[in-house]
Structures are given as C-alpha cells and as structure tokens.
Amino acid sequence: MLTQESIQAFVADWYHKLDVHVPMVEVLPLLADAELECVFPEVTVYGYAGFEGWYQRVIRTFFDEVHTVTKAEADIQGDTATVSVVVQWEASVWTAPEASSKRINADAYQTWTLKAGPAGTPILTKYVVDDFVPREGSATL
C-alpha cells in the first residue's frame, strides 16, 4: 500500500541513486518495465531498455550531481499515486576539448505516476519533466 512516507522515501532513494550513479541493476527494482514511460526534455523512453539507454548516456555525461528535492506532494488513489516533484539539479559537464567543465544549476518540475509494486513499495510507471528552468549563472545544456 502506498503511503506519504513510502513515497517520500522512494523520492529520496531515487535521487540518491542518480547522484551516485548506481549500477542499472540497482535502479531496475524502482521501475515498472512494461508500463514505464519517461518523458525527458530531450527524449521519451519506454521500458527498461529505453530507460537504460538514457541512464547510461546521462551517467557518462554529467558528474558531481546533486539533486535537492524542494517539493514532493503525492495524491494517493488506492494503489496508485500522482506525485508533483520539484527538484533543484546541479551537475558538472565536460565536453572535449574544452579546457574546463561547466556547472549546470536548474529547477526541474516533474509529474510522476507510482503504483504499489509486488512488495507493496512504490514503483515508477511514468516520469514526466514538465518544465526545466535554468537558474541564474547556470551553464546551458
């Protein structure tokens, strides 16, 4: 059964895993393969395979990532929840042959759909980046 507490823990765990670039095998239990749809600013992906392609590109592009959740409000309806998430994302990126890396700092406004997984813990079925707003002084993507 989904609860506000289990959803808050899921959100914190999700961003921790992204920050430290865990192996994909540690991300899979958080995702619903057959139903998964992720709408990122640059691409929409489906299922484990689509997500893994996106994830592998991201962990090879960005480093020193820090995700700070400023909002995670869930509307729970039985075994599903719609979650409004706002996260401040900071990351460094280096593009060869530039002499130094650049720092990105932006707010991402997102809508997630979670369902109760087999163990009753949340799993992600839909992840949509609704808006991506660079903060003042941020490098561009």
Rank of each mutant, 00 (worst) to 15 (best):
V133K: 04
G53C: 04
V22R: 11
I59P: 05
S84H: 09
E98M: 08
L30A: 12
E42N: 08
E65I: 12
T80I: 13
P29M: 07
G50C: 07
G137H: 06
T3R: 05
L18M: 13
I104C: 09
D131G: 03
D75W: 05
T68P: 06
Y48W: 03
A12P: 07
T121E: 14
W112G: 09
N105R: 13
E35I: 09
L2M: 05
A12G: 01
F62S: 00
T70N: 07
K126T: 00
F51C: 02
W14A: 00
P29K: 04
A49R: 00
V128L: 11
H67W: 11
L114V: 04
K71C: 03
Q110A: 05
E42L: 00
Q4L: 00
E37G: 04
Q110F: 06
V66G: 00
T125S: 02
A72T: 02
E52I: 00
D13S: 01
V27L: 15
E90D: 10
I104E: 12
A74V: 09
E42A: 11
E98P: 01
Q110V: 02
R60Q: 15
T140L: 13
W112Y: 10
R57N: 13
E65G: 07
L31E: 08
G47Y: 05
L141I: 08
H21K: 15
